[in-house]
Structures are given as C-alpha cells and as structure tokens.
Amino acid sequence: PAHPYDRLKTTSTDPVSDIDVTRREAYLSSEEFKEKFGMTKEAFYKLPKWKQNKFKMAVQLF
C-alpha cells in the first residue's frame, strides 16, 4: 500500500511503522514518486544503487 511522503521521510514526526526502511521510496504512490524524484519508479530502479541512494538522500528517504 502507498503511504504519504510526509510519513515516509526520515525526518517524519509521524513515521509509518512496519515498512522496509531500506526501501522507503517503494511505498510512495506513482504520482508522488514522480513528483519527488522526477522519474518513474521503473526508471529509478534501473539506475545504479549508488545513484538511487544519492536521489533518496536528496529527498530524505535514506
């Protein structure tokens, strides 16, 4: 299930529990994912792991 970005980011005051914290981005809706990352999930997962992590750090999901 998708969760709002505000509850997934590492600085959230009301974090979602029971998620894989190493894959926070996977819980974003497709729309919100595209808004935050500027690309689709499919394109994101084709990137090298280090680049994925760099993007995730930039949007507080790492």
Results as ranks from 00 to 15, higher is better:
Pro1Met: 14
Pro1Arg: 11
Pro1Tyr: 11
Pro1Leu: 12
Pro1Ala: 11
Pro1Gln: 13
Pro1Asp: 12
Ala2Gly: 10
Ala2Val: 15
Ala2Trp: 15
His3Glu: 07
His3Arg: 02
His3Leu: 12
His3Asn: 06
Pro4Tyr: 10
Pro4Gly: 09
Pro4Phe: 07
Tyr5Trp: 07
Tyr5Ser: 09
Tyr5Glu: 09
Tyr5Ala: 07
Tyr5Arg: 04
Tyr5Thr: 05
Asp6Ala: 00
Asp6Met: 00
Asp6Gly: 00
Asp6Pro: 08
Asp6Arg: 00
Asp6Glu: 11
Arg7Ala: 08
Arg7Pro: 08
Arg7Gln: 09
Arg7Thr: 08
Arg7His: 07
Arg7Met: 05
Leu8Pro: 04
Leu8Ala: 06
Leu8Gly: 04
Leu8Met: 05
Leu8Cys: 14
Leu8Gln: 03
Lys9His: 07
Lys9Leu: 07
Lys9Trp: 05
Lys9Asn: 09
Lys9Val: 12
Thr10Asn: 14
Thr10Glu: 05
Thr10Gly: 03
Thr10Ser: 06
Thr10Pro: 04
Thr11Ile: 07
Thr11Asp: 12
Thr11Pro: 04
Ser12Met: 05
Ser12Pro: 05
Ser12Trp: 03
Thr13Trp: 07
Thr13Arg: 11
Asp14Lys: 06
Asp14Ile: 07
Asp14Phe: 08
Asp14Asn: 14
Pro15Asp: 06
Pro15Ser: 03
Pro15Thr: 04
Pro15Phe: 02
Pro15Gln: 06
Val16Ser: 04
Val16Ile: 10
Val16Leu: 08
Val16His: 04
Val16Arg: 05
Val16Lys: 03
Val16Asp: 03
Ser17Cys: 15
Ser17Leu: 15
Ser17Val: 13
Ser17Phe: 14
Ser17Pro: 14
Asp18Ile: 03
Asp18Pro: 06
Asp18Leu: 08
Asp18Phe: 05
Asp18Thr: 07
Asp18Arg: 08
Asp18Asn: 13
Ile19Gly: 05
Ile19Glu: 05
Ile19Gln: 08
Ile19Met: 05
Ile19Arg: 03
Ile19Ala: 05
Ile19Trp: 08
Ile19Lys: 03
Ile19Phe: 05
Asp20Leu: 02
Asp20Lys: 04
Asp20His: 07
Val21Lys: 07
Val21Arg: 07
Val21Asp: 11
Thr22Arg: 08
Thr22Phe: 02
Thr22Ser: 10
Arg23Ala: 04
Arg23Asp: 06
Arg23Trp: 05
Arg23Ile: 10
Arg23Gly: 03
Arg23Val: 05
Arg23Thr: 09
Arg24Val: 06
Arg24Trp: 15
Arg24Leu: 13
Arg24Asn: 05
Glu25Asn: 05
Glu25Ala: 05
Glu25Ile: 08
Glu25Lys: 03
Glu25Val: 07
Glu25Gly: 02
Ala26His: 08
Ala26Glu: 10
Ala26Trp: 15
Ala26Asn: 07
Tyr27Phe: 02
Tyr27Gly: 04
Tyr27Asp: 05
Leu28Val: 02
Leu28Trp: 03
Leu28Arg: 01
Leu28Asn: 01
Leu28Glu: 02
Ser29Tyr: 03
Ser29Trp: 04
Ser29Arg: 02
Ser29Ala: 04
Ser29Lys: 03
Ser29His: 07
Ser29Asp: 11
Ser29Phe: 06
Ser30Tyr: 11
Ser30Ala: 13
Ser30Val: 14
Glu31Pro: 04
Glu32Ala: 05
Glu32Thr: 02
Glu32Asn: 05
Glu32Gln: 07
Phe33Ala: 01
Phe33Thr: 01
Phe33Gly: 00
Phe33Tyr: 02
Phe33Cys: 04
Phe33Glu: 01
Lys34Arg: 13
Lys34Val: 13
Lys34Asp: 08
Lys34Phe: 15
Lys34Ala: 13
Lys34Leu: 15
Lys36Val: 15
Lys36Gly: 01
Lys36Leu: 15
Lys36Thr: 14
Phe37His: 01
Phe37Ala: 01
Phe37Asp: 00
Gly38Val: 02
Gly38Phe: 06
Gly38Trp: 05
Gly38Asp: 04
Gly38Met: 08
Gly38Thr: 04
Met39Ser: 01
Met39Gln: 01
Met39Tyr: 02
Thr40Phe: 03
Thr40Leu: 06
Thr40Gly: 06
Thr40Gln: 02
Thr40Cys: 12
Thr40Asp: 14
Thr40Pro: 03
Thr40Tyr: 02
Lys41Phe: 07
Lys41Leu: 11
Lys41Val: 09
Lys41Trp: 07
Lys41Ile: 10
Lys41Ala: 08
Glu42Asp: 11
Glu42Lys: 09
Glu42Val: 09
Glu42Ile: 10
Ala43Lys: 12
Ala43Met: 13
Ala43Ile: 11
Ala43Val: 13
Ala43Tyr: 06
Phe44Asn: 00
Phe44Cys: 01
Tyr45Pro: 00
Tyr45Ser: 06
Tyr45Ile: 03
Tyr45Lys: 04
Tyr45Trp: 06
Tyr45Glu: 11
Lys46Arg: 13
Lys46Met: 14
Lys46Asn: 12
Lys46Phe: 09
Lys46Glu: 11
Lys46Pro: 00
Lys46Val: 10
Lys46Gly: 13
Leu47Arg: 00
Leu47Ala: 01
Leu47Gly: 00
Leu47Glu: 01
Leu47Phe: 04
Leu47Ile: 01
Pro48Ser: 02
Pro48Asn: 01
Pro48Gly: 00
Pro48Ile: 01
Lys49Asn: 07
Lys49Ile: 13
Lys49Gln: 12
Lys49Val: 13
Trp50Arg: 02
Trp50Ser: 11
Trp50Ala: 05
Trp50Asn: 02
Lys51Phe: 12
Lys51Trp: 13
Gln52Glu: 01
Gln52Ala: 08
Gln52Asn: 00
Asn53Gln: 10
Asn53Asp: 14
Asn53Ala: 12
Asn53Leu: 12
Asn53Met: 12
Lys54Ser: 14
Lys54Cys: 15
Lys54Gln: 14
Lys54Leu: 15
Lys54Gly: 08
Phe55Val: 11
Phe55Pro: 00
Phe55Lys: 13
Phe55Ile: 11
Phe55Leu: 15
Phe55Thr: 06
Lys56Ser: 02
Lys56Gly: 01
Lys56Val: 08
Lys56Met: 09
Met57Glu: 13
Met57Lys: 14
Met57Phe: 08
Met57Trp: 13
Met57His: 12
Met57Arg: 14
Met57Ser: 07
Ala58Asn: 10
Ala58Asp: 11
Ala58Trp: 14
Val59Asp: 05
Val59Arg: 06
Val59Gly: 02
Val59Trp: 12
Val59Ser: 07
Val59Pro: 00
Val59Lys: 12
Val59Tyr: 13
Val59Gln: 08
Val59Ala: 10
Gln60Ser: 10
Gln60Tyr: 15
Gln60His: 12
Gln60Lys: 11
Gln60Arg: 09
Gln60Pro: 12
Gln60Leu: 15
Leu61Ala: 09
Leu61Tyr: 08
Leu61Met: 14
Leu61Gln: 05
Phe62Glu: 15
Phe62Arg: 15
